[in-house]
């Protein structure tokens, strides 16, 4: 894998740090008028998800991380692994619970998810921004109520819990924004 000098640092660049692939979030040069320049960098560790600040001497090089994103369709889970497929090559990849993390509650069959691969193995799964899921459990609401009120919790078929307007009922399919876990609309 190529090395990157601090001049190549920018948001989104993938580098190795403490044996873990990381993504650069922010990069700032700090330099006294008379003296050594440094790069103060905010980094997200891609496996642990931890965000940390790191300082480099400007001009230093860091090992790049062989990290790539690929869009794959979710197929099924066997309880231990979650299986995804490339719709063009029909190649399949299995991701474990650690790679799935919180994304597990947004998995819908045939939805295209972004799988982050490090050296060919999945380390993270990002669901689509919007998913459609059926409500399996919620308190009965009042007819004629509008979306403006506080709402109520509803459990979806994947186990995710979101706040929905009072008029939404069990059995209905709703659209949810997976980035903040918020209800968007009913799906007719």
């Amino acid at each position: 894998m190529a090395n990157y000098s601090t001049n190549e640092f920018k948001g989104g660049l993938k580098i190795m740090m403490d044996g873990e692939p990381c993504s650069i979030l922010e990069n700032e040069m700090v330099k006294p008028g008379k003296g050594q320049a440094f790069n103060r960098v905010r980094i997200r560790k891609l496996i642990s998800g931890k965000v940390l600040e790191k300082t480099f001497k400007s001009g230093e090089s860091v090992e790049g991380a062989d990290v790539m994103d690929t869009d794959l369709a979710y197929l099924y889970t066997d309880g231990e692994f979650w299986h995804f497929m490339n719709n063009e090559t029909f190649e399949q990849i299995a991701a474990d619970e650690k790679a799935l993390g919180d994304s597990v509650k947004w998995l819908v069959e045939n939805d295209l998810c972004t799988i982050t691969l490090w050296n060919g193995s999945p380390i993270a799964v990002t669901p689509p921004n919007f998913v459609e899921l059926e409500i399996t459990e919620t308190d009965p609401g009042l007819k004629g109520d509008t979306a403006g009120t506080g709402g109520k919790p509803a459990t979806l078929s994947t186990g995710a819990v979101v706040r929905v307007p009072l008029f939404v009922q069990i059995g209905e399919v709703i659209k949810v924004d997976t980035r903040n876990g918020e209800y968007v609309s009913r799906v007719k």
Binding site: V30, P32, G35, Q36, F38, R40, K54, T55, F56, K57
Partner: peptide
Amino acid sequence: GFADIAQNETHKDTLLQLLFCM
């Protein structure tokens, strides 16, 4: 928290500048 820079540094002024700046 600057172990990566400090470990191999041979110039006292670089360390002073690092600590002073940060």
